[in-house]
Every structure is written in C-alpha cells, then in structure tokens.
Design a protein around this nucleic acid. Structure first.
Lengths: 206, 206, 206, 206
DNA sequence: TATGAATGAGGGTTCATTCAT
DNA sequence: GATGAATGAACCCTCATTCAT
C-alpha cells in the first residue's frame, strides 16, 4: 500500500514538472498573461490540475522562474572569487541576468506590471537576486569603481526594464543600453560637466 | 445661423476634451488597456460617444498624448540655441521626456507593447520625438561628447523603458538611472577596462 | 414670402426623392435591413431627415417599392385587352412580377419576413397586386385554363418566395420554377395519377 | 471508475440535448439568428456552455437539423422500393420534406440566407438531401414522368422557398403550391401553349 | 487527485432612436 | 425642417474560476 502512495506522489510530481515546462513555453509565446487553459492543454492536464498545483497565476510564474533565478544568484559568489576586477565581475553577472531576461519573453513585462497577481514574482526576484547583486556592487564600491549611490534593487529594476524588447528594440540594443548604464554607475550621477570624452569620468578632479 | 452651429461645435469640442481628459486619467490609473466603458463613464458619456470621436483605441491613446509629444519635440531646437554644452542640452531634453513619461503612467507600458492597437502610438511617438532627439545627439557627437554609436531611437526606447515605474521603483530612481545611462552614452560602449573612477571614461587613452 | 415656402417644400421633396433613391440602392446592396445611417449617408442627409420622412423602416421600404408595384398592377388590364389567351396573359404578368422581384434584391426576404416592421410592405404589395392578379386568374378560370382553386394571394406569395435567390439558385432557376408552378396551376391539384407525360394534365379524362 | 465517467458523459449529453431542444424552440420562435443568450437561457445554462458545445452558430444550427435531415434522406430508397409510380414516390418524398420544412420555422429562411454563418447548414442540407432527391427524380425521368430538365438542387431550393410561411400563407397553401410545382415538373417547361386543361400537359402532341 | 464542463462577469462593438440647436 | 451627436440597449465572445464526479 506504500507503493500506490508513492506512485501517486510521483505522478503529482510529474504533473508539476509538466506544468512548469508547459508554462515556460507558453509564457515565451504569449507572455505571462496567457490563458490558463492554454497552459493546461500544453501540459496535457485539466485546468483543475493547474489550480491545484498553482492556486494563483503568480505562483506559477514564480515557480517557472525560480530555478533560473537561483542559478543566476549562485553565479555571484563564483564571480567574486575569480581574479577579475569587481567592475568586470559585475558586468559578467549582469550579462547573465540580461541573458535570462531577454530569453524569457514576457518576464520583463511581468516585472514592471503592478498587477497584484505578479507581486510575488517581483518579490521573489528581488529576494533572490538583490543579495547577489549587492555583493558585487559592494566589491565595486570598495574598489572605488562603483558609485556607492547605486543600489542593487534599483539597478536590477532598471536592467529589467531595459530588457523589455520590442519590434525595433531587440537583444543587441538592450545589451548596449545595459552596458552604458553600467558605465554610468561608475561615476557620481550628479556629474553633468561638459567635459570632453577624455575627462567625463573624472569628476573627482574638480 | 452661425451661432447655433458654433454652439454645436463647441459642445462637441467640449465633449472631445472631456473624453481626452477622462482617458488620460483612466490611463493613469489602469493603463492604456482600460475598458472603453470606464473611460465613457469617467467622461460621463455613452460608449457610443467614445467610438464616434475615437473609432479605435489607438486613436484615443494617440490623441491623449499628441499634444505633449509635440511640446516635447518643440523643446529640442530651443535647447540647441541656448548657450550650454550639447551634453547639457541633451540632458535637459531627456529630463523633459522623462517628466512626460513618468507623469503619464502607462505610457511606458504602451510603448513596449507589441499590441497592434498601440502601434500608431508607437509610430507617432517615434516620428515626433526621434528627429528632436537626433538633433541633440548629433550636436553632442559633433562636440565629441557623445558616442556616435548611440541612436535616438534606441536611446528613447531605453529611456522609455527606464521610466516604467513600479511599487519600489519610483520617479527618483528612474531619473537616476536615466542620468547614468546618459553618462554611459558619452563613452564608447566596449569600454570595460577595470580603470579606477578617474579613468573610466577615457578609453581613447589606450 | 410665398416663394421661400415653396422653396422649402421643393427642398423637402428633393430630400424625399433622394432618400428613396438612396434606399433603393442600399436595399439592393445590403437588403432591407441595412442600417438607417447607411441610407442617410447615401442620400447625403442626416439620419433625422430619414426619420422625419419615414418614421418607420416599413414606411421607407414601402415607399421605395410603391411606384414599381403600381406599374406592375397597371399592366394587368393592358394584358387582358390584348388578343392572347388568358394563360398567356397571366404568364406575361407573372414574368413582369418576377422581373420586379429578382431585380429588387432583398424584397423577397422582406416579403417572407414576419418582422412587424415590414408588415405594411406586405399589406401594400398584396393590396396593390392581388386585384391585378385576380383579374388575370379569373379570366383564366373563365376560359377553363386555370384551376379555380388557385387564389391570387397564394400564388403571388408563392412566386415571391420562388424569387428569393441564393448563391446557386439564380434568376434562371427561379424563372424556370415559376413557369412550372404556373403549369401546375392549370390542373386540379389533387391530380397525382401516375399518368405518363402525355396525359398528366388531363385528370378530367378519368 | 467507469460509472462516474459515464455519469459525466451522460450529464454532458443531456446538456447537449437540452441545448439542441432549446435551440430548436428558439429558432422556431425567433429564427436561426436568435441571440445565443436566449438559447442559453432557454436551456438553463450559461452562454459559455453553448459555445463549448457549439463553437459557432452554424454548428448549432447544423446539429439541430442534422437528425431530421438524415431521416428525410433515408426515406428515398424506401420509397423507391415500394410498388408505386416514380412520380408518386417523388411526391411522397417531397411531402416529407415539406413536413420537415414547415415544422422547422426559420429553416426556410436559413436556407435562402447568404449569411456565411449558415453556409454549413446549406451545404449539409444539400449534401444530405440532393442525392436522395436525385434518385427519385432519375426514376421519374426514366419512367418518362419527369422532365429531365429538373435538377434536384433547384427543385429542393424551390420547395424550400415555397415552405417559407407567413401570416396569410400557411402550411396548407404551401403544400398546395408545392404540389402544383411538382405537376409542372412533369412537363417540359417551355410549354406555354394556350391549350385547354385537357391538353395542357401534352406539348409533345405538337 | 485529476478532470473538464459549467458558469457568468467582463469587455468590445454596432446601430436604432432621440433631441437640442 | 434638417442635422448629426449622444445615448445605451443588445449582441458577440473570451476566459478565470469553481465543483461534482
């Protein structure tokens, strides 16, 4: 009698995995607002099963991206141990973050939505990634390469927004803009001197 | 005979203005996808009146923002004539653009949406503002203060994205991020040297 | 002061004529259920003017076809005076009626509809044409060429129905079916003997 | 385990049947263009249920009449095997067809409509009944009792039209007109000689 | 547990009809 | 009279969500 229970649990787990996979694919195609029924159909389960595993859309969205978020977060300590400058480590981490965002069509939208059903995703993302990003920013600040005025939360939100793609704003443009934003994070932001390119980044000269 | 007609036209114009005002308010609260009925109710008219004045949602959205877009575009030549550095002129113009964007909650969303009903807004915005932004960028490039690799379209799209606000990412954060992005537009983007703050912006030294 | 009044009346008459013309064209294209606004636009008047001249759709429909109905009715006495057999006179009159019906796309539909808004058209049509048709039928009956059991009302209704065209049932098919119906009106209808073609129409032989 | 599923299926089947019944009744009262909502209310279900069972109006209309169409079609071979003259067999079959049509108020209208949503019904009806009708016509032609110029399609269309009833054109009138049309199908149609009743059907005498 | 049928609120759109000018 | 803007009822259709089996 133990076996059937185990089998049932296994079946449940399989359903859950199928749902995550299906949701990931559907989100990619239609965005995170895709009809629940489409996800259920893709996973070959009934809609009730979706609701049982993920009572709210937010929980499903959250679950879909949790694994990748964890991986992204785990990248930070690795980078910090490598023999590169803190700015370079930060840049590489942001690269990974951007890669994650632009690959997950619709996630950028999800992040900027005030839809309460997506609030938990928002929270998860920040809870997971902010510490990672903070550790990299702190290293940069300590090395005098990053303006202490930049917070991980704001930076990530900004990068998230910059990764909302469109018809004439694709991955390459987003990557370029993110890179420029990072450059801007090195300097103090109130620096608007009309210095030529050779001096732009040297406000401390004043 | 002229008076009555004038009165009719005036009433219609008032209605149209009320609709634009109502739509603006509703877009602010609910985004540009708000139900047409809500806008009609807010303007205290029947839904048919909305459809009469603005047969499609795109036309309404477009009309709501057209005036402000025109004002924003008109600012560019004014700034170029002032005795400030091109970078400063660009910064001020972007300030105005940001002000416009963060005041119009939902416009950022509208800009990034691929929804065909918003395509005309997209087009209008780019047609109106890209030339203005380009003139400022060109002046900056001519002065050696802006990287020629930055296009007006991409920059505006990025700024538009950065102005999509959220619960913990308000106007101040957006403004800061935009300022840093502009700083990053001064340098060539492949600059990722681990230079200290004093040299960050001087890749040409190499 | 008499002139302006005359002018106004003339203008009204012109409007009325324009409306009839426009309605006729629109009914032909879209059927008698076409939007009132389409008719107003075609006539280049406001919708209010349509309602002033023709308070109900039925009155408009009726007016549109009245003239042609009158012409059709007037044909009957003319035909009766010609030196042809009564059956032939009837056939020619029905020809004219069919011509009228198939030319007025949508009229067949109008005739069969129980829509109360079209009741008056129904009434008009019968009031106008039934006497004409009756006179021809009576002549046929008197000559022993038409079954007395056939009433004008029923026959006209049937012919009207047979003239409701469709994608694969065009004018030629309708004309053929009407011709066969008329043939059937010569005989007593309970004639279902299995007589060969040579005897089919001669039940009185029995 | 089989029982519950069976119960579910049974409930669904009952729902479907209720919908067909409700639709049949509503079509009878309001025609096949009746609001979906009315049908849902009549069946005591939500509109969604209607759409689930019959995604398009055409499918609902089609389903409502399919069974009766099949019965009607199946009658043809039966009649052909009976020891009656082909003309009589045809007449009996047309009787059944007329019975079907006049019982289903609104079906006649449906048949003549060019509304694309009713195209499938049109197609179904012709696909189902034309072969049946053709077999009877062919037998009649072979026996020299039916003019070869009559096609099943045209005849059925004509009979369908003749069965569009109205306030003063009821079932009896329609039946009479159909009977006369059938008589007319025995003769060659170009027969318009002014022959007396005793010779009307014998054009071949000429 | 899983299922998916049923529900019904919600949002889009059309058009007959009224009425102030 | 003529106008046509405004109204709002009425339809269409889509899905999020529930719940009996």
């Amino acid at each position: 009698m133990a076996e059937p229970i185990g089998a049932r649990q296994a079946a449940m787990e399989r359903n859950r995995a199928a749902l995550l996979s299906a949701a990931s694919a559907v989100f990619l195609e239609q965005g995170v607002q895709a009809p629940i029924r489409d996800i259920a159909r893709r996973a070959d389960v009934g809609v009730g099963t979706v609701y049982r595993h993920f009572p709210t859309r937010a929980e499903l969205v959250t679950a879909v991206y949790r694994h990748q978020l964890d991986e992204c977060a785990a990248l930070a300590p690795t980078l910090l141990e490598e023999p590169v400058a803190p700015t370079e480590a930060l840049a590489r981490w942001i690269d990974a973050f951007v890669e994650f965002l632009v690959t997950k069509h619709g996630l950028g939208v999800a992040l900027q939505s005030e839809d309460p059903s997506l609030l938990s995703l928002h929270t998860l993302m920040l809870d997971t990634l902010v510490p990672a990003c903070t550790s990299l920013l702190d290293a940069g600040v300590a090395a005098g390469e990053i303006d202490p005025g930049v917070t991980a939360h704001t930076l990530m939100r900004a990068v998230g927004n910059l990764c909302i793609l469109g018809p004439s704003y694709r991955r390459a443009e987003a990557q370029d803009m993110v890179a420029r934003l990072l450059i801007g994070c090195r300097a103090r932001v109130d620096d608007r001197t009309d210095a030529p390119l050779s001096r732009q980044g040297a406000p401390q000269d004043a």
